[in-house]
Every structure is written in structure tokens, then in C-alpha cells.
Design a protein around this nucleic acid. Structure first.
Lengths: 184, 184
DNA sequence: AAAAACTGACGGAATATTCCGTCAGTTTTT
DNA sequence: AAAAACTGACGGAATATTCCGTCAGTTTTT
């Protein structure tokens, strides 16, 4: 409970102020929790960041794969999953900012990334299938997935930044762009 | 001169250790400069980051637009410029990491971004031309540019991270993906 | 009522920032 | 043209400030 409050507070503060500007005392205050409680739950500011990352990716994957059924054409599945990713981020702007900002941070080790990303390996199966059917350009499944993911990430950053309003048609067009980019 | 040394040292340290972990004293040491000299040139750590950003974007645009002639087909020009961007980042991994890491940082204000990005507006002319010729999907020139840029950024991150070796063929394929994604 | 969890004041380590003497390079005086 | 006076960038010791992490006392849970 308190742990959750701390992670939530950290998320908000890190995104709005940046890692270096946030103190443990601030996090404790924002979480309505004593400083000692922060230290009971986490060893350092860096550990808080790591745990926020893991928690965020878990919440993201839960949202994305909810109601996911392997039915319809491969293209349909592709659209379904990536649209869920897009909608998750649109509905959770703080989580998106955090995700973007820390993706390349030296604080997040290979291990942390690996733990956090396991759920998303399901995407690779989809891409592997597409490769079998010669639908995609000749890259590995993993690379194709990373390509689409980073495209979406980057696009959302600018879209949010510009306060571009994103309706269903825009999302559909964008998904089409993602598909076209990797199509053979 | 000293100013340059400080910016260079800051770039290296921020990328490898992260903003919060780097002290002014460290920067001074890495730059072979006294602490006082750092303060003579900059008011704070944040200002150093902002100036590194501006300097980095200037160096990037100088590299990208060097020898750029508006000749050949629009597709050729597209390939020329984006290939330059890719090569710049491949040859300057520190600059790339920095660019990626701080793009969404709260330290960089709208003003700073605007100053740093002016040179890159030339890209928009290219996209506008393509739109006139109905080559692209129906988005604004600016959005198309941001889309391609973020795609490249994201792709390079993973490519470098995975130590994927990037030869001319790979770059060509990737540029093709960028083109296909926005083609009507 | 015993154990566990929590709180936040506090001390001290880490860090930022200031301040001032030095000295290489420049200008003025003789 | 030699000497004297001046300048201000520089370095780093001294000082100010921040921030961490502990722990004694308090509250909550079991």
C-alpha cells in the first residue's frame, strides 16, 4: 500500500522535475509517508526508479493483452495489439513520459529491462508468423518489433507534445504507417 | 576553449552516469579545468545540459546539411538527408545517447528546443513538396518529419544497444522502411 | 500486550557555490 | 623599447547548502 503510494509519487515527481531534482523527502511528502518508510521499502532513489519501471511495464502489458485472442488475420492482430499500446499511453501520459525518459537511462540495467519486457515477447511470435508468410521485410522478429515499438514511442512523444488531438482515424492511419513500413 | 572542454566533459559524463550522478567537481576534473571556471561559464548544472543540447544540435545540423544540394528527385533528397542523420549518429554515439536521453527531459524548455531545431526546418520544405505531389499520406509536413525523425531515433537506439552492425545495405533497407511508412 | 510498521527530527557526508590571490597577457607610462 | 600598471580568466580552498539515511519515539496491526 505505502509501497504503491511511494512508486506513484515517484513517477509523478520524476516525470515533472527530472531525476536529479527530486529528493527522497519530496517523494515521502508527495506519498503522504514518512521518510523512514521510503527507506524501509527501497534502498535508494535508483531502486525506486527501477521498481517504477517494472511496475509500469507490468501495468502496460496487462492493459495491452487484456482480451487479446489470437483470432482474425495477422494484420488484424497486429492492429489490435499496437492500438492497445497506443491507447494505454494516451490514457496514461505520466507513464508514457516516464517510459520514454528512462528507456535509455543508465540506471536501468539489462536485467531490469529483461524482467520488465518478458510479457512483450508475445509480440515476437506475431512477427515470426508474419516472416513465415513472407509479409515482412527481411529482418529478425525481434528487430521488427523493436522497430515498430520505437516508431510508436517517438510518434506519441511528439503527438502529445504538440497536443495533437488523436482520434480513431488518426490512430488507424498511424497503424497503417507502421504496417507499411515493415511490409515486404 | 575552456567552455568547449566543459561541454564535452559534461556530455560524456551525463551520458555514462546520468544527470543526477554527475557533480560539478567531476565535470571540472574531466574537463581539466578548475571548478571556478565551470561557474564562470555556466550558472548551474541544468544550464550546462541546455548548452550541450544546443551545441549538439548545431553540430548535427552542420554535418547533415554539409554538401546538401537540392538536386535529384525528391526521394533522392529524402534519402540523402536522412542518411546523413543516421551516419552522424552512428559516428557520434555519445551525442546520440545524449540526444535521445534528454529529448524528453523537463530541463529542456520549449525555447531551448526551438533554438536548437531551427536548422531542421529545412526538412519540412522537402515534405511540403512531397505533399504537393501527393506522394505522402495526408498529414502536415511537420508531422511527417517528426514521424520519420522519431522512427530513426528509436531504431538507432535499439540498433546500437544490440550492437547490430550496420552496413550500407542495412541503412538502405531502413531508409526504404521510412519512405514506405509515409508513402500514400 | 507484543510485534511490526511508521514517522520525522537530526547529524553529518556530499555537493554546490563563493571568494580571493595568482599570473599570463595587454595596455599605458616613462 | 623598457618598465610599470592594469586586466580578468583561472584555480581551488573555504564556506554554504542540500540531501541522505538513521534511530528514538509513536502508532497500528496482529
Amino acid at each position: 500500500m505505502k509501497r504503491e503510494q511511494i512508486l506513484k509519487a515517484g513517477l509523478k515527481l520524476f516525470v515533472t522535475q527530472g531525476l536529479h531534482a527530486v529528493t527522497i523527502a519530496q517523494i515521502a511528502a508527495e506519498a503522504n509517508v514518512g521518510i523512514g518508510t521510503v527507506y524501509r521499502n527501497f534502498n535508494s532513489k535508483e531502486e525506486i526508479v527501477q521498481q517504477i519501471w517494472i511496475r509500469q511495464k507490468a501495468s502496460e502489458s496487462a492493459y495491452v493483452f487484456k482480451n487479446y485472442k489470437k483470432q482474425g488475420s495477422l494484420h488484424d492482430q497486429f492492429n489490435f495489439l499496437w492500438e492497445r499500446v497506443i491507447r494505454y499511453f494516451l490514457e496514461h501520459p505520466l507513464e508514457f513520459q516516464f517510459s520514454y525518459q528512462f528507456a535509455a537511462s543508465p540506471i536501468l540495467t539489462k536485467e531490469i529491462h529483461e524482467i520488465a519486457m518478458t510479457d512483450f515477447l508475445k509480440f515476437d511470435e506475431l512477427y515470426a508468423l508474419g516472416l513465415d508468410q513472407n509479409l515482412f521485410k527481411p529482418l529478425t522478429a525481434r528487430r521488427l518489433r523493436l522497430f515498430t515499438f520505437s516508431t510508436i514511442n517517438g510518434w506519441l512523444l511528439w503527438a502529445m507534445d504538440e497536443k495533437m488531438d488523436i482520434d480513431d482515424a488518426t490512430i488507424a492511419l498511424f497503424l497503417q504507417m507502421c504496417w507499411d513500413s515493415i511490409s515486404a
